[in-house]
Design a protein around this nucleic acid. Structure first.
Lengths: 195, 195
DNA sequence: ATATATATTTAGGCTCACCTAAAATAATAT
DNA sequence: ATATTATTTTAGGTGAGCCTAAATATATAT
């Protein structure tokens, strides 16, 4: 059984691997989890023993296949719960993250599969992020950055790359007359769009 | 903030007070929570300091008003989640308890109020137990024990007093041609009914 | 009333997941 | 290449929530 702490570490490592490449440093993890780096070192040693990650002293960590599958199952749950909160309970897209962070740790395969069905097997969450299936597979993402479009192009917003509540609220306000969802890369300071 | 352990203790004390009167013994609590009595003694001392319960050495515990309110909010959440699982996700009434035990600890007032609305403000859970409102108040229960009825009486099952999965399954099978819900008192070995 | 049985508490210990401070290692600047 | 800075690890410690074994308090039987 994987603990709450382990699940949070696995999710954080997954996200950091996605963003900054294959290997994740102790300090990056510590910052994301808001946990002291010394504590992180401690914990990842234990996770390595359990084969959830591979770890070489002073050289950062990487998810094992087992760790990746668990991380994906947490992400799947998180995103399905977000869809539920928005589509069924009328929450706004900037109000769901904190609640989903709690719900994602509830353990029951039947629950999550029933929820998936109840929601009509959504492919993406309210921010446009893809929802992995029960086996951890993603559908293909056909969306393109806004920058790849020209002025006058007709297109459809499907999601954002920046998830902070403040940005989501900003977007809701400034483009409330547009579609609700769009891709935005804060590094490039760009809002982007798909077909 | 109340911890997971505290919430479980409060819920257990509430249930034992309901069944066996005002004061709850260390051993009764220990048995219900499947925790060693020595650990329970330890823990209730801390809860007393926090004014969640009143406690006199060797004389058992009783919920404070604050403790009672928290217990009721957990019970409210538990029962609302059970309604959701049965009515929206098609679970059977004998499949929902374990999942609701996890969901009841999710913290968000907005969530629980939205859920209540989503479900149409149900008064009872799938087993017929009353759902307290946000302030911890119960609606009046007009149901009567089956024993109070005579052979030939026309009536409506609304709930069970015994919640074990095995009994629920038994009932589902044996009276699947009747209504689904009924009151049953295992101490008196009786199934009972309301109008 | 005393002996026996049962319930409760005390004392000491454990694991988990965190912490700080100091030491060791790695990266960067001169 | 060496000094400085930043990162990572080690060592020692903490609180929460549990444990067992032993001591004490309470209830029951004779």
């Amino acid at each position: 059984m994987t603990s709450l702490a382990e699940e949070n570490y696995l999710k954080a490592i997954y996200k950091l691997q996605e963003k900054h490449g294959d290997i994740v440093s102790t300090s990056a993890l510590a910052e994301m989890l808001e946990i002291n780096a010394a504590s992180v070192t401690d914990f990842i040693k234990k996770m390595a023993v359990k084969k959830l990650i591979s770890y070489q002293k002073s050289k950062g960590v990487r998810l094992s296949e087992q760790g990746r599958q668990i991380a994906l199952s947490i992400i799947r749950k998180h995103r399905l719960w977000e869809v539920w909160l928005v589509n069924k309970l009328n929450f706004k897209w900037d109000e769901v993250h904190e609640i989903a962070e709690q719900l994602e740790h509830v353990v029951s395969n039947e629950l999550i599969e029933q929820l998936d069905e109840h929601l009509g097997y959504p492919k993406t969450d309210p921010h446009g992020d893809l929802i992995p299936d029960a086996k951890g597979r993603f559908a293909k993402n056909s969306s393109k950055p806004l920058l790849d479009h020209k002025v006058g192009d007709k297109t459809k917003f499907v999601g954002v790359a920046e998830h902070s509540n403040s940005f989501l609220q900003y977007l809701t306000k400034t483009i409330s007359s547009w579609a609700m969802n769009c891709w935005w890369n804060p590094l490039r300071n760009s809002i982007t769009v798909s077909r």
